[in-house]
Nucleic acid binder design. Structure first.
Lengths: 300, 300
DNA sequence: AAAAGATATAAAAATGAACGATATCTTGAA
DNA sequence: TTCAAGATATCGTTCATTTTTATATCTTTT
């Protein structure tokens, strides 16, 4: 049996040219090799197909009927191969895929929402599936190919993932519009004169990134309320004189009008990164999304 | 630009196995080469596709999205290639082509007619185009691919054609049924007592194969009629007491009932051969026809 | 009769692929 | 913790195959 594993597929490229030229010499010219080289390859082809393929005529070669019958299939095969190795192109307007992203609620609001708007404007057929972030499970789902992207803090990202830092956002203090300290330069005393609310998934355990910087800060003693996420923060602030520490980017995009409380102290900040499986490093669609994400991160 | 002439198509066979195994080591086992060899080919593939194709994981390799997207096309391509190099098969029942044959009228009657019957019985979709023989023009038409086969005498066939002798047929003497000499052993005298008719395309010039052997034969003096072909011979014989010299095979297949006139003299004979362009030597359909022709020639 | 132009062949050179040994990394087990 | 197992990548070296140069052979053409 004539097995493909034994066959030299590269010889088919020579056969293709031979079919065009019907001349070993001319084919050699076109292939930029010498005539004996093509003659040698022709021998291999004759062996492979168990057919002379070409018989001599005064001016070169006449293809056998087998060679003629091979012609269309050879052309098709090489054209397919050319397609195969051609660099892939990504056309946003026509791209059709689902992007699955996991992010905490801060990043959902501050980054993903505007990202989705950009995506929908440029690539209307692309769907986006957004998931809350559960770091441990998320990493596994990235590994399994269920998730394309996870957004979190650099420390929370698996080391074997590809990742990219997006931006660093300083915390600011915020309160309801009309709050006594709103839009003012507040002193430390007046700032600590109000009770505070902080988003802390672990409650008063205060574990996680932000709280490293605030470890023995007097601020923590003034925290009266902790929230698991930013969702209800606007309405809580609106209905009280509580002051919240939030990343700056949330100030403008969070629903409900809030004011900044300016204080002299240098505030901690959080750095945000995107991570994905290295398998997607060169994926054109994925790279396109990452470019959009990077552009969005650079704004404001 | 990534040109197919530069690409090593054989590497695609390795990529195919790699996509199956997701392991350089396993792929190497399946390919019966060493692991570094596959690793080396993988490098070439990475270069060719400008993509890592696989990233490492604890147990081997994880394909990139590009590699995954390549998978179906690779499978298809290799399957096509396998088809391409697979030995061709010829199925008479389904074969669909036109066989163009040129032969003199003797062979048309004695060989081609039964051949057509065989062909029609075995390969109902095959058409046969029959042409009278004009050796010079026929050879050119064979060379040009218009004719698939020419049947003639070995001397009349171009030397650069492939050819095969089919049979040798002795001349016999024939006359109408009821002729005084019919079915008898005739003496030379009684045989020469009748006028004769002979097929001689050149008339009384008596040129050609048969007449070499009869050059100074007294028979030629008794020839009263010459015919350009065998077509009208039966009716001429039926309507006269003429005796004809015809190849034995014509006796049974020629229309109109004829009887043999047996004579003691050793008769000349003609040898018949088929010729075709060497390009068709390995053509399966052509070989099938030649086999039928050979089988038919062996009969009677 | 020789010159031109074609393919095939032979020996030598050069290229490229496969090998064995080894480095490096990760995982899983003692 | 350490060690063994198992994975890919890398490094020279060896070996096989392709390519080249040179030549033979055949046919056509001048």
């Amino acid at each position: 049996m004539n097995d493909i594993l034994k066959a030299d597929l590269n010889a088919l490229k020579v056969l293709d040219v031979l079919l065009d030229e019907c001349s070993v010499s001319q084919a050699a010219k076109r292939l930029h090799v010498t005539q004996p080289s093509v003659s040698y390859t022709l021998q291999k082809l004759r062996d492979l197909f168990d057919d002379p393929l070409f018989v001599r005529n005064p001016r070169g070669l006449t293809p056998t009927s087998r060679a003629e019958s091979l012609r269309p299939a050879i052309k098709q095969l090489l054209s397919d191969a050319q397609q195969l190795i051609a660099p892939p192109v990504f056309v946003p307007e026509e791209a059709e895929f689902t992007l699955s992203v996991s992010a905490n609620d801060y990043l959902q609001i501050a980054l993903i929402v505007p990202l989705v708007q950009r995506i929908r404007a440029l690539a209307p057929k692309v769907k986006v599936a957004l998931f809350d972030l559960d770091s441990k499970a998320a990493a596994e789902r990235v590994r399994g190919g269920e998730l394309d992207l996870m957004l979190s803090f650099p420390q929370a990202l698996p080391a074997d993932f590809s990742s990219e830092e997006l931006f660093t956002d300083p915390y600011i203090a915020a309160a309801r519009q009309g709050h006594p300290l709103a839009d003012q330069q507040a002193s430390a005393e007046s700032f600590l004169g109000y009770d505070h609310v902080i988003v802390s998934p672990t409650g008063f355990a205060f574990e996680g990134g932000l709280f490293r910087d605030l470890h023995h800060s007097p601020l923590l003693d003034k925290v009266a309320v902790t929230l698991p996420n930013f969702a209800v923060l606007p309405s809580l602030l609106a209905a009280s004189d509580l002051i919240a520490m939030i990343p700056r980017r949330l100030l403008s995009v969070m629903s409900g009008p809030l004011s900044e409380v300016k204080i002299a102290a240098t505030m901690p900040s959080i750095t945000v990164a995107a991570a994905w499986h290295p398998r997607l490093d060169h994926d054109l669609a994925h790279r396109w999304v990452r470019n959009l994400l990077r552009a969005e991160a650079l704004l404001a």
